[in-house]
């Protein structure tokens, strides 16, 4: 577990940052973090217009006026300062921002800083990166605030924010809703797959591995592992499915602002991916019925030749046809 570097510019605040970092690892169910332990201030000029940043070299930068000073006042002066509604919102958002930025640094155990630097260039994956991390962090923040702050501060902060009437909004609205809807659709289609599991798989992975991780999750809940025993065909199918998901989320760089656009795009990305899995199941089951041994020697067309949705749908993030019934899978036991 990485802990705050004592040489950091940002004060310790009684171990608050370490507790947030620990909580993020836990709720992301991540194997590791690339956070170096360093927490410094955003440079002057940026600190009034942004709350935080996870840098390429693994530091966490936080705004002095928007994050650190409000939380320092809360610790120094106690819950009475929460009578100022703006300060209460800033404390809440400050904890959330630190968690969101640390979420960018969660990683698989074998992930290195060099891998992270390569991933930074994948700007087409920003919508998925921000959408999944924001969706998960937004969902976890109410409980996290109570876990990372002492009870005498956490409960009053939660009450002060709730008293403002409106729900605290997520950021990146078009991307967050797409991630949530994608997760919900997969949870609806695959028995025993929860939408939360999909959000977790999307949030904890690094950009370049996210589409593959989501593809793995879908394949694992289908009958494909039993049907696709040739490792090359299994890898080809996984790669095509991952590309379909990755391209769908990359297309959100151009999503319209209205909420329904993000919603419908998330539904279409999921629909296209589900259709590929279900038609893949039918295709490989039929091939197995006609003699899987001959098929595995390469007589059949390449993976996905039948199962892929029409090519013109890929760039738009998926087709409009509904997923195939899973009756066949259930029927095959």
């Amino acid at each position: 577990m990485t802990r705050r570097d004592p040489a950091s510019e940002v004060p310790d605040l009684d171990g608050l940052w370490d507790r947030i970092a620990e909580d993020v690892l836990r709720f992301h169910q991540a194997e590791a973090t690339l956070w170096t332990g360093r927490i410094d201030f955003l440079p002057p000029g940026q600190d009034l217009v942004a709350r935080g940043q996870a840098t390429a070299d693994g530091r966490l930068l936080l705004s002095r006026p928007l994050v650190v000073e409000p939380l320092s006042r809360l610790y120094a002066e106690g819950p009475g300062v929460l009578s100022d509604p703006r300060l209460a919102v800033r404390c809440w958002r400050g904890i959330k921002a630190a968690a969101h930025e640390l979420g960018h640094l969660t990683a698989p155990a074998d992930w290195t800083m060099a891998d992270r630097l390569r991933d930074l260039d994948r700007d087409q994956q920003d919508p998925a990166e921000e959408g999944f991390i924001e969706a998960l962090t937004h969902r976890e923040t109410p409980a996290m605030v109570r876990r990372v702050l002492p009870a005498e501060l956490g409960e009053p902060l939660a009450r002060a924010v709730a008293a403002q009437g409106e729900a605290v909004r997520p950021s990146y609205p078009g991307w967050t809703i797409a991630a949530n809807v994608f997760a919900g659709e997969l949870g609806a289609e695959f028995e025993e797959l929860r939408a939360d599991d999909v959000l977790l798989a999307g949030a904890r992975e690094s950009a370049s591995r996210r589409p593959g991780a989501l593809a793995d999750l879908m394949i694992s809940r289908s009958s494909l592992p039993g049907l696709l025993q040739d490792p090359r065909r299994a890898a080809a199918f996984r790669s095509e499915l991952a590309d379909l998901i990755g391209d769908g989320f990359a297309g959100l760089a151009e999503v319209e602002t209205v909420k329904s656009a993000g919603l419908q795009r998330g539904e279409r990305i999921a629909g296209a991916a589900i259709e590929k899995v279900r038609t893949g199941e039918l295709f490989y089951a039929q091939m197995a019925d006609f003699g899987g041994v001959a098929f595995d020697r390469g007589i059949a067309p390449a993976a996905g030749a039948v199962g892929s949705p029409p090519a013109q749908d890929h760039g738009k993030g998926g087709g409009t046809r509904g997923p195939a019934s899973d009756k066949g899978k259930e029927g095959r036991g």
């Binding site: 958002r93 920003d126 403002q164």
Partner: peptide, 17 residues
């Protein structure tokens, strides 16, 4: 509102990246 202001500002983190 305060919440809308803060939610809007949060998106600048993506532009810092």
């Amino acid at each position: 509102t305060d919440d809308e202001r803060e939610a809007a500002l949060d998106m600048n983190s993506a532009l810092l990246r």
